[in-house]
Design a protein around this nucleic acid. Structure first.
Lengths: 344, 344
DNA sequence: CTGTTAGCGCATTCAC
DNA sequence: GTGAATGCGCTAACAG
């Protein structure tokens, strides 16, 4: 069709419509002036040829692109996938494009893969999983891209990145208080092995709060952030009697615990064991689970992310702390009755 | 830093390293020859400045880009998210970038949003949800991009698109046979309202096979492809006794049915009611569900998609039919005993 | 092996 | 309002 290239270009359209290339360019530039007749002929020619403005070429002129890099690892995780669904839909509404990077597929070269996002001149890099090495944050700054960290640990120091954090400490305390109210006297917290991120904060706040009230806490920290980790934790922790409450730092983990406790370890939940999670993933509300959990609002998270994305490149970093709330369902005992404890 | 632009360019690096721009370009081009010393100085300068090759500009020269457009609507759906996770990881391994489009966020302008993917000169458009209007398929062809349809209806005719289909008919028959083996004599199939896609084929094959064996089938086709649709179907279908087997054309739907049957409608599954799904989403294997289902292999699906992506633009369209297999779990009764039926 | 030149597709001056 | 010329950042074909 075009002769010289696979793609149809503005020159092709110009020739077809009998106008100059500049006219074509103007016809697709919002602020430009073209006569109605010229525009009509250009659009007609474009339609026939299947012409589309090449945004790759266009972006060479613009100070920043419409590309937003989104980085995740556990894309099949119920909460992460809900996050991604909400974020990508919101980006779509703003006419921003989402360049998705799944670091689970990148092996040891993850750092390099992350950097490669910048090759596409993304205006922002949003991190849903993993950590942000300061080298990468510096790279972003040098290339005029903002970096948004969602429930990630704060960067080393001085490194400028937007921070969006659900209130992990408050969430950990809420979970602890709720289990105590249920009369639990010997609890466990299940974390994955990941040493980064908000998950540690949730666990720490939980443990501290329990310690302050004299309740012993067993820590289980192996595996990745997955359902399977919850399964294995439950098998180990419930092998013998004792534990009467478990906090999974993630709904997915907590659901692994919950299901294994019931199906394999012969526990009645919440009668013998109370289980509580963190996230409020859609699946936690299903009748098969009824997981009591600490909710972080997806809407608030998405709105905050968009706010960060809208920031000018040189604007000072944003630090947003999002509130959390306890969602009561049926995986935690209603009140203390098995131990004759007075709820504070 | 650079003076003229936000981004650091090859010219900046060249100046800093005391070489020409071409040398910089060559240092980053796989097949090119640069002396070790020159390369070292260039890399050093690039490191200091935070230089990265601008792939947007680079792609102006290349016949096709490294961008693959991936289109989905229900990104939070358990199976779709698993699909996306597998696909994006695989793309990552191939050094291909994933441009994600969530059509759920685009409202009525979905068609235009889809077309906008081509503005980025994606080499391939992969459709996970929704339909492919022939106008769009034509547009792809005109722009040298292939279109890959996964479990989508075949395009009108002559329109060239790669088709990757799990064997819906076989799956529907497997589900029917399994329910009959369980002794079901009055069954229902739950479809969403979507008139497109493989879901209809699954339901049709199921219904035909049942009809052939004289088993009446109730059709329930409202709502979208979601858990909630399964919930509402179960409420309606199980309001009075009669139905003893339900086929959900999607695991998510089937799980809505399963959970509602148990928790709200007082049915014991599989004793009073057998439930079977389609997909084999990870969550279906959880102990809380134990959903018997028709599995389409994620690995096979991903491999097939990559095969299509690897095709040259002018290669003839691919038509791949992927086998399905029944995965036995605990949501379907073991054998016919309630009705004294001989299993064929 | 290196630097110079041209051109990718586009937006944006500048004349007319 | 329109067309010709320039430059965005890069690669490739050219000469040295």
């Amino acid at each position: 069709m075009t002769g010289r290239s696979r793609f149809v270009s503005a020159a092709d359209v110009a020739e077809r419509a009998g106008v100059s290339r500049s006219a074509v360019s103007r016809a697709y530039t919002p602020g430009a002036h073209v006569s109605a007749e010229t525009r009509r002929r250009i659009y007609a020619a474009a339609e026939e040829l299947g012409y589309r403005v090449n945004r790759l070429a266009r972006s060479l002129h613009q100070p920043r692109s419409d590309l937003v890099g989104v980085v995740g690892a556990n894309l099949a995780n119920p909460y992460i996938s809900a996050q991604l669904a909400a974020l990508s839909a919101a980006l779509q509404r703003r006419r921003l494009q989402c360049l998705l990077l799944n670091t689970a597929g990148s092996g040891p070269g993850a750092q390099e893969d992350l950097a490669r996002l910048l090759d596409y001149r993304v205006r922002t890099v949003v991190l849903l999983s993993g950590a942000a090495p300061d080298a990468l944050i510096r790279l972003c700054a040098q290339n005029g891209a903002r970096m948004v960290l969602i429930n990630r640990p704060a960067p080393p120091e001085g490194a400028a990145a937007d921070l969006i954090l659900a209130d992990s400490a408050e969430g950990g305390r809420l979970a602890a208080a709720r289990l105590r109210a249920a009369g639990c006297r010997n609890v466990a917290v299940v974390i994955s092995a990941s040493r980064t991120s908000a998950k540690l904060d949730r666990a720490r706040a939980f443990a501290e709060d329990m310690a302050r009230h004299g309740v012993p806490v067993t820590r289980w920290a192996k595996g990745e952030n997955s359902y399977q980790t919850g399964v294995e934790a439950a098998r180990a922790l419930l092998a013998r009697p004792g534990i009467d409450g478990i906090f999974g730092v993630t709904d997915e983990i907590a659901l692994g615990v919950l299901n294994t406790a019931r199906a394999e370890m012969g526990r009645r939940v919440p009668d013998d064991l109370s289980v509580i999670g963190f996230d409020d993933a859609p699946v936690s509300a299903w009748a098969s689970h009824g997981l009591t959990t600490v909710a972080q609002s997806l809407e608030a998270l998405t709105a905050a992310t968009l706010e960060a994305i809208d920031c000018a490149p040189e604007a000072p970093p944003l630090h947003l702390r999002l509130p959390v709330a306890l969602v009561e369902r049926s995986s935690v005992a209603l009140a203390a009755h098995r131990h004759d404890v007075i709820v504070p």
